[in-house]
Measured scan of single mutants.
Amino acid sequence: MDEEYDVIVLGTGLTECILSGIMSVNGKKVLHMDRNPYYGGESSSITPLEELYKRFQLLEGPPESMGRGRDWNVDLIPKFLMANGQLVKMLLYTEVTRYLDFKVVEGSFVYKGGKIYKVPSTETEALASNLMGMFEKRRFRKFLVFVANFDENDPKTFEGVDPQTTSMRDVYRKFDLGQDVIDFTGHALALYRTDDYLDQPCLETVNRIKLYSESLARYGKSPYLYPLYGLGELPQGFARLSAIYGGTYMLNKPVDDIIMENGKVVGVKSEGEVARCKQLICDPSYIPDRVRKAGQVIRIICILSHPIKNTNDANSCQIIIPQNQVNRKSDIYVCMISYAHNVAAQGKYIAIASTTVETTDPEKEVEPALELLEPIDQKFVAISDLYEPIDDGCESQVFCSCSYDATTHFETTCNDIKDIYKRMAGTAFDFENMKRKQNDVFGEAEQ
């Protein structure tokens, strides 16, 4: 370990593993360490099931009705991949897709007046949907046509809207959309967690709705994908990429100290040895004095023996409960997957309800979601602090990732990755940087 590296990475969460992969592909010498004996950090999948019970201090362990412990891979952080989103792009560019198998999530649902409705995925579904009345549908269709044709580089498509100054509230007004449709559009399509976006320039919202539609167009059922064997497969896929390009991995490796000289990182000390480096990437748990708390998320993992009611017996789905429907500031989400994804025993389902904490009784906040899941065989409640770095790391060369937020997709995580890359490399992130180099010394032969 007593060696000189360009970059040392602490923690094998998804953000850290993707950055480690990119740095290795770009010719950097990388050492990647984790104090845990497993990959994934906060974003790991726990197996066998006995391990999950232990982690949540349920000492009696799983009953026999849960089947074989080894058949379970339970995500600690519930997220899906947008089919046309940035993480899929990263997987394709790096060819990490060859280590993973994905399934399309069967449906996306939205909560309205105590019931759940399928988010329409085709024009026919939209016309048949009970989510809105006849005239509302016509106006909504006009709005969707506007979004589909919108091109930020072609003012002819703006229809009198200025993407940089017109607020989204004004765009909704222009198409005369009612409150329910606005809730549905902002939260189930643009996937905002709160209503803060309404008074911001509309460009980002329009682009988010386009991303949803384009992702949906790829597979038809929903815009989301999920990897077989759980999300823990993602960091491992990128760790393989890093290793192929010469990255060194050490799990179960305690970090005793991060060594600084004149305010700059110069190395990491572990078990009496020092590895030197020019730059350091880590998750917040490794540098508690360089991060601040930015809120909390509650996630309740529920094991069920039945599909969720009114989802047409889907073996995977997402449910969004827009905040307006339950008098909150932030949406509540449910991600459900099952034995069909090799993450649970035969006939079992895993539904994870999550939201940003707003009160001193977080469990009560998630109740509307839990009511949709009854009866629940077993619950595991996790309340996590969200951390963000206190500075950009440019001076110390210590670059810290943000905690995983309450969103049900990876777009915010990818933004964090691109942002850290830019601060480390001094140049904007470009997907081309992730391409495997042809015929290089570490390149794998085609399968």
Score class of each variant (00 low, 15 high):
Thr359Phe: 00
Glu374Leu: 01
Thr15Lys: 06
Phe143Cys: 03
Gln438Lys: 00
Phe109Trp: 04
Gly186Tyr: 15
Gln397Asp: 12
Pro48Arg: 03
Pro78Arg: 08
Tyr53Asn: 08
Glu4Val: 11
Asn262Thr: 03
Ala353Thr: 10
Lys253Gln: 14
Asn327Lys: 01
Asp154Ala: 04
His341Cys: 13
Val334Arg: 01
Glu4Cys: 13
Lys329Gly: 10
Glu365Asn: 03
Ser384Trp: 12
Glu358Trp: 10
Lys418Ile: 10
Pro37Ser: 08
Glu367Val: 12
Arg299Ser: 00
Asp392Tyr: 04
Arg423Ser: 00
Lys112Tyr: 05
Cys317Ile: 07
Tyr229His: 06
Tyr53Cys: 09
Glu371Gly: 12
Lys89Ile: 06
Glu374Lys: 08
Ile298Ser: 06
Leu87Phe: 06
Ser242Thr: 02
Asn342Arg: 15
Gln57Lys: 01
Thr408Ala: 09
Ala406Val: 07
Phe410Tyr: 04
Gly272Asp: 15
Leu189Met: 08
Glu261Arg: 08
Pro227Cys: 04
Arg193His: 11
Asp71Arg: 04
Asp151Val: 09
Val398Gly: 08
Glu42Gln: 06
Gly114Ala: 05
Asn153Thr: 00
Gly133Arg: 12
Gly69Cys: 07
Ser108Ile: 02
Met250Thr: 04
Glu123Gln: 15
Phe150Ile: 07
Ile22Phe: 14
Pro362Leu: 04
Asp2Tyr: 04
Asn252Asp: 11
Leu280Val: 13
Tyr117Leu: 01
Pro375Ile: 05
Ser213Ala: 01
Ile46Met: 05
Asp151His: 05
Glu273Asn: 12
Glu51Ala: 04
Tyr226Cys: 10
Gln346Tyr: 13
Pro223Arg: 00
Tyr229Gln: 15
Ser129Pro: 06
Gln438His: 05
Gly246Val: 01
Cys317Glu: 02
Lys264Trp: 11
Leu304Ser: 02
Val74Asp: 08
Phe109Asp: 01
Phe175Ser: 03
Trp72Arg: 03
Pro163Ser: 06
Tyr99Asn: 00
Lys364Gln: 13
Phe143Asp: 01
Val326Tyr: 03
Asp283Thr: 12
Ile77Asp: 05
Ile352Gly: 01
Gly426Ser: 11
Ser213Ile: 11
Gly347Tyr: 15
Tyr192Asn: 04
Ala190Ser: 08
Phe431Asn: 03
Ser24Thr: 07
Ile298Thr: 06
Thr94Glu: 15
Thr205His: 15
Asp162Val: 07
Pro155Ala: 06
Glu273Gln: 09
Glu261Lys: 10
Ala351Ser: 04
Leu191Arg: 00
Ser44Asn: 06
Val171Phe: 03
Leu59Lys: 14
Lys379Asp: 08
Lys379Leu: 04
Ser242Cys: 13
Ile319Leu: 09
Gly272Trp: 04
Ile281Leu: 10
Gly13Cys: 03
Ile376Gly: 01
Gln447His: 06
Asn153Ile: 01
Gln164Tyr: 05
Val105Arg: 10
Met82Leu: 12
Ile420Met: 13
Asp151Asn: 09
Thr412Gln: 00
Arg139His: 08
Tyr39Ala: 02
Lys112Trp: 13
Phe442Val: 13
Leu14His: 00
Gln323Trp: 14
Phe56Pro: 14
Gly114Cys: 08
Lys418Arg: 10
Ile308Phe: 09
Glu3Lys: 09
Val30Leu: 05
Thr194Ile: 09
Gly160Asn: 07
Glu204Met: 15
Ala294Thr: 06
Arg290Tyr: 15
Met134Ile: 08
Gln323Val: 03
Asn26His: 13
